[in-house]
Design a protein around this nucleic acid. Structure first.
Lengths: 139, 139
DNA sequence: CTGCATCCTTTGGGATACTG
DNA sequence: CAGTATCCCAAAGGATGCAG
């Protein structure tokens, strides 16, 4: 009973990808949630994909596709700090006044872009809007 | 200033995919989190990808790649119910005793598999383990 | 076996005000 | 402009026990 679980450790091959996962112990799906889980992290990657942006810019960008409410600076700060510490983002501070800080995708953040592409591709079909329509009326 | 934001509404094309997103209002990344966010949903899709499984089987499967602790039935029940209501899963109840219920991927759930593949592909590089190593000691 | 009821703890997210 | 501090609320997750 090999190939029993894509997420289990052991000498086996992923049914989804055909890749050997024997060297991996933690389920990528779970790790993915721990790394970019939460309301904003994925969206931040999405926004920074176009290029470096400043703290305030990111905050404003998050409002656009996020339907409505602005992100409070505390939350945004925490997200950016966490993602920077995980090595997903790069933070560049300019010694000017008023202060200027630019965030950009670090290699580890860029490595997530193929996943993001697939999510956008999925979203382009309207699937996500269909699902959210029925489950609850807009959150 | 078209192409300003992959996640914004309006007549534009995704920079990530080249797809027209003008008919979409909600950012796929945000919707993705709302739909499969949380600790188990993605993993459940992963597990059911191989075929229908029963309540208890799913619970046991989740332990394997999830590092350690078992899922309490209350949580698993809530996740499965939610995912079924969103149309991601199909629930088939057999009129036998003891009770037997099989969950399987519905079309809407299968539509998420390409994303899952990309996540596994990303995980196969070991990226997720690297990231989680540095940020916190396993948790 | 499947799943609900209760209760509790932890985490995430938000409002507001304030500083370098 | 780029954050931090404080306080608060809601949601997610977990332990335990019970029921069809």
């Amino acid at each position: 009973m090999a190939l029993d679980d894509d997420t289990r450790r052991g000498p086996e091959v992923s049914l989804l990808t055909g890749l050997d996962m024997s060297h991996i112990t933690l389920c990528p799906a779970i790790a993915f949630n721990k790394i970019v889980g939460g309301r904003y992290k994925l969206h931040i990657l999405c926004v920074l994909h176009r290029g470096p942006q400043r703290f305030g810019e990111i905050g404003r960008s998050l409002v656009k596709g996020g339907l409505g409410k602005p992100v409070t600076p505390r939350i945004l700060s925490r997200e950016l700090k966490g993602m920077t510490e995980m090595g997903l983002l790069h933070r560049k501070e300019y010694p000017v006044v008023p202060k200027k800080v630019e965030y950009s995708l670090a290699p580890r953040g860029k490595a997530l872009l193929p996943i993001l592409s697939e999510i956008v591709r999925w979203g382009a079909t309207g699937a996500h809007e269909d699902i959210l329509e029925i489950s609850q009326t807009g959150q």
